[in-house]
Design a binder for these strands. Sequence first.
RNA 1: GGAGAGAUGGCCGAGUGGUCGAAGGCGCACGCCUGGAAAGUGUGUAGGCGGGGAACCGUCUCAAGGGUUCGAAUCCCUUUCUCUCCGCCA
Length: 441
Amino acid sequence: MLDINWIKANPAAFDAALSERKNVPFKASELIAMDESRRSAIAAVEDAQAKRNALSKLIGQAKAQKDEAKANELMAEVASLKDAIQTGEATRKEAEDGLRNALLVIPNIPLDEVPRGADEADNKEYFGLNGSPATAARARPAKPSFSYKPKEHFETGEAMGQMDFEVAAKISGARFVVLKSHLARLERSIGQFMLDLHVDQHGYTEVQPPLLVKDDALYGTNQLPKFADDLFFTPHGESRLALIPTAEVPLTNFVRETILAEDELPLRLTALTPCFRSEAGSAGRDTRGMLRQHQFNKVEMVAITTPEASGDEHEKMLADAEDVLKQLGIHYRVMMLSTGDMGFGAQKTYDLEAWLPGQDTYREISSVSVCGDFQARRMDARVKGKDGKIRHVHTLNGSGVAVGRALIAVMENYQQEDGSIAIPDVLQPYMKGLTSIGAKS
RNA sequence: GGAGAGAUGGCCGAGUGGUCGAAGGCGCACGCCUGGAAAGUGUGUAGGCGGGGAACCGUCUCAAGGGUUCGAAUCCCUUUCUCUCCGCCA
């Protein structure tokens, strides 16, 4: 949620910045007009309340002095204010809700360095701060080469008899998968490895969060009100709960409605959780294989920082996600998303795209975003500085990384001509020392 | 799911219709005291919103929402959460 006072002070910048983004339903001038009526409504109510309070005080004094006549006189006077207060409060609530509801559907303002553009075609490859393409590329694993046409993950997986879409469809329908045997273990190993890496080496605290969340939490991390169609809901009493589409929701909402001390920051949390997405609107996209599922596991990283620290934290979180792919030995590239391709709440987003030789292309495996105070305003998450000043925190989130997609990347990059899959060194301890799976014996 | 008890400031805790954003204590901050510290002592110590350059003023907030009343932390209703007992369960 953007700050109406900022919009008031920078209407041109607001309109210009959001012209780069899709579906922005309001102009600055409309929001400012809404704010005007909100504030005049507040002034009207408070004026009436002040008069009522003053008179009530006098009534108390009159009664204390047993002056019933005066008390009655004052009571008659204050009665006339009642209507004004009541209708004023209704007007005020309407105006406040109107402005808030408008602000809730306005996306975040991209940072200056974000490439302007309409869609992913305008994304720019990112080589690190002050980093040249050459040096950044040297630190990354190389593309593997094959003496045959590399297979896609579902070909190998089905041939192994350890990846089964038909059984999954019988149980749950389309966009589900069943993994079995060594492949199931490999999936688990990848998740464990990544979680351990972030906890042991990158300074995150491991969390087991709830997987069902309230609407309030979803408003905080901007799934609501605009993206309800992407979620699975389950009835709960008179209300409902949503299955988390990402652990970003519970982890970021850790700090909702709190004022943190500055020395508690940065707060770095990570969790390995299932994620549930209805994928409404994705009909026909990525229907083969397990690239796009209703349910998948993901390691998520979340950081809560001061406004000053969020930029550096974003680079750190990107490096933390990159480290996963470096250690797994998977070639990848980093893209800075353009204004047209960024998520609703992001100020700036880096996508990690893993090389998938079977598909002969790069595919998104992680997305690392800095949201500024956008989510903090929605959640009312603040930090009290050493000087006593209270400001909204900054929030960041990134996948570190999606487990299902990492499994795909391992399967395609480590495939062998005989249909087996070599196990990356860092995963072997998790695989009880297995160096290869799926080989014909 | 049933029965009961509760929810007050960073924490503990007083407050059953009037000047209560709220006693007292703890904690914290700053000062005094001290060679330094402890003890002692003094002062200060919530947030939102509106107005204002600021000092400051107004308003709202005692779990949340609604109601009664001239006036609600205090009375009534609904909801949420916590605790105890029973049932059930991993």
